[in-house]
Amino acid sequence: MIAWVSPSDAAFGAVAELFDDYRAHYGQQRAYGATRQWLQDQAAMSGLRISAAFTAGRPCGLLTALVVPASLTLGTFWMIRDLYVPPEHRGRGHARALLTETVSQARATGARRVALQTEHDNAAALALYGSLGFAPVDGYVSLNLGL
């Protein structure tokens, strides 16, 4: 089951805990309280949308997305920021279900497109994204300025 989760939902704490696991997976220090507060703040201030896959009432995957202005088309697009399924839950279709639900919601709200980024050597993610119709954007370079 896939559900959109807000800070007022009973499942929010368990989803925040899974998000903290996601951060630890990428080498960050665990900080459940700070993680929960950050997710709560982002949902309130930036409109971060959080969805989770559930098995037996527990979250087993999550996705975060932002709705972003698409100024040239005077519309919006959805930017997927985080997608995580713990290793013990992989291979069961949770990531595909989360992505499919997100694309459906974006389409239902009239978004122009759904965008995401991943590492160039993440073969499993690239295969999944490609199978759902995501394609590289030619002519653009991703740049960052660390602050």
Rank of each mutant, 00 (worst) to 15 (best):
A3R: 14
A3E: 14
V5W: 09
V5T: 03
V5Y: 07
S6W: 05
D9A: 14
D9Y: 02
D9H: 05
A11H: 11
F12S: 01
A14I: 01
V15Q: 07
A16P: 08
E17A: 15
F19E: 03
D20S: 12
Y22Q: 01
Y22V: 01
A24Q: 13
H25I: 04
H25S: 00
Y26P: 07
Y32T: 09
Y32K: 09
Y32P: 09
T35R: 05
Q37E: 15
D41A: 15
D41C: 12
A43G: 06
A43Q: 10
A43D: 10
A44T: 12
S46R: 15
G47F: 01
L48Y: 12
L48M: 15
R49T: 11
S51W: 10
F54Q: 09
F54R: 09
T55M: 09
G57P: 09
P59K: 12
G61I: 03
G61F: 06
G61R: 07
L62V: 00
T64L: 01
A65V: 06
L66P: 00
V67E: 10
V68F: 03
P69L: 11
P69C: 11
A70R: 04
S71P: 06
T73V: 10
L74A: 11
L74S: 11
G75F: 07
G75M: 04
T76W: 06
T76A: 08
F77P: 08
W78A: 13
M79S: 12
M79F: 13
I80N: 02
L83H: 03
Y84C: 01
Y84T: 00
V85T: 10
P86T: 03
P87R: 05
P87S: 09
E88R: 03
H89W: 11
R90D: 02
R92F: 06
G93A: 09
H94T: 05
A95D: 07
R96H: 11
R96W: 03
R96D: 08
A97V: 10
L98G: 00
L98F: 07
T100P: 09
E101D: 13
E101L: 00
E101K: 00
T102I: 01
V103I: 14
V103G: 01
S104A: 15
Q105S: 09
Q105H: 12
A108N: 07
G110S: 14
G110E: 05
R112T: 14
V114R: 07
Q117V: 12
T118R: 08
A124S: 05
L126Y: 03
A127K: 12
A127P: 03
L128I: 02
Y129C: 10
G133Q: 06
A135R: 15
V137M: 15
D138Q: 15
D138H: 11
D138S: 13
G139E: 10
G139F: 02
G139K: 04
Y140M: 15
V141C: 11
S142H: 14
S142D: 13
S142W: 04
S142Q: 14
L143A: 12
N144I: 06
N144L: 13
L147D: 11
L147H: 14
